[in-house]
Amino acid sequence: MDYNFHWRPVFRSLPDILEAATKTLEVSILSIFLGIAFGVLLAVAKMNGPRPARWLAISWIELARNTPALFQLFFFGFGLGAFGIHFSPYMIILLGLTFNNAGYLAETFKGGFNAVPPTQLRAARSLGMTPVQAYVRIVMPQVFKIVYHPMTNQLVWAVLMSSLGMLVGFRELSGETQFFASKTFRIFEYFAVTAVIYYVIVKFILGVSRLIAWRAFRWGDT
């Protein structure tokens, strides 16, 4: 093996790379919150909505789940571009991730709703609570506990998927790495360091998530 590993250029660019990592976190977290908002709407539309809303919800969900994430990004990039709508690379990633998250989370929420025993709703109504009170106070907290773990996984998924920013010109962690790597031809070294950074980010997210769960869900399993 006559290859010399050159790590120094990588460490010199580290500040820029780490700053790009914050962009990764920012777009991923934002896409999750938006994904949750749309996901809940889609779930409700699919379960209870009028015909056209149900149809729209099902289309969105099935498209998000049956096509590659990169394809969905292409749609927001090239597809809408055909109609003259051009988004910045950041927006393409944000829209693509949100679209994908919403589709998967909708199914998660639907499952969560169905998992709360209908008897909980009955008990709440029998005490005189209005439907809104019953849903907000009794059903939703329990749904939240059920979907918490899948939601965390979806966040991790979003972080990993954001790496596709590299392919649409968004300078998040991967994009920034690609930029430096192609300048210096130290592709392996740069991407190896980035791989470690992603690993740390994912572990961090999972750790924080577990901590929050431990504090918030002390009412545990019956």
Binding site: L160, S163, F188, F191, K203
Partner: peptide, 23 residues
Amino acid sequence: DAFRSVPLIIQLVLFFNLFPILG
């Protein structure tokens, strides 16, 4: 666990560039 905590695209690029190094 590492395979599932690093984006696939990074793994692909890394692996693809590792082997030329090894000849």
